[in-house]
Write a protein that binds this DNA or RNA. Sequence first.
DNA 1: TATTGTTATACTCTATAACTATA
DNA 2: TATAGTTATAGAGTATAACAATA
Lengths: 177, 177
Amino acid sequence: MADDREDMGDLVPKLARLTAVFNSGRFYARAAELSYTTLERPSLTILGVLEAAGEPLRIGQIASSMQVEAPHVTRHVQKLEKKQLVRRVVDADDRRARLVAITPAGAAIAARYRGVVMAWLSDAITSWSERDRKEILRLVTRLVDDVLEHLSQLEEKAPALDSPDPGSAAAAWAVTD
Amino acid sequence: MADDREDMGDLVPKLARLTAVFNSGRFYARAAELSYTTLERPSLTILGVLEAAGEPLRIGQIASSMQVEAPHVTRHVQKLEKKQLVRRVVDADDRRARLVAITPAGAAIAARYRGVVMAWLSDAITSWSERDRKEILRLVTRLVDDVLEHLSQLEEKAPALDSPDPGSAAAAWAVTD
DNA sequence: TATTGTTATACTCTATAACTATA
DNA sequence: TATAGTTATAGAGTATAACAATA
């Protein structure tokens, strides 16, 4: 168990760098430019979520998928609606909610952006074997699923951690920032 | 080739979600809480970079590693210095530069934070086989290396893309946002 | 009374531009 | 003249709180 964690410890800095690259303004700016879009990053992300889902989603579902709070999604959906890249329909089953649906114009932009990133990623790993390509797709897919699953489990049973027990062993590590 | 790209297309949304999770404020807030630190995220990232490097680094090196611009690093290094989590020494070889070195207190915080993330990641994949764990470490490591390599190649030969040729085939795709 | 979403506000993150000092 | 870094400023990204409407 301790050994497992040691092994995985090497993965943390790697993932940190990977996320830094994909999340960097530089990376986004370049991909957006090649996609001929002036949309802000969260707007493009929303289009991507809707495209991947293949069906209209609620604000809450989009927020959850993006790991952000709802108001953030609301604001960008409003901008997207003005540009007619999404449209909103009242959810017949629950009239508090309104479903966000991607329009053909929105889907075109999402597909173009994804195509740019895809081509770029593909170019980055041209030297990989067929087997390694299949493996990374399988393992990253599984990692995403398990990480999200684990995260939602933590959130269910977690809220008591706001004020840690000062007498606990963990608190004894505490170091002043 | 077109097929390769199709396959990798599935990887894009997965990576997007993975990076969204690791980069989300929620995730950071939780890990920081468990690490008993009140440092801001970029400060913690800087400590992580210094810890991983194992030697003092220049501002420019840290910025490059984080994929951000130098002024951003400067500001956070100044905060870290006030808290005595890093110290700065003039580079004897080039007196324009000053090396940023992590202090024992800073290293303690970085290690604790990494430990939290590591344990959390380890818990998320407890059900994985030994083989899959080794594989994801190997493949993600390779992916990071290749992606960074490819990115730096693009930056070398890229700057001409600011104003795409309006007559090109690519520009013909252009769709108004 | 709980839940879905919106509006208002503020803070964090990051880039660009202008500047200083050394090479 | 070019490079490493800093200071100043502005804009993008996101969270929290207060509210409205429906369940």
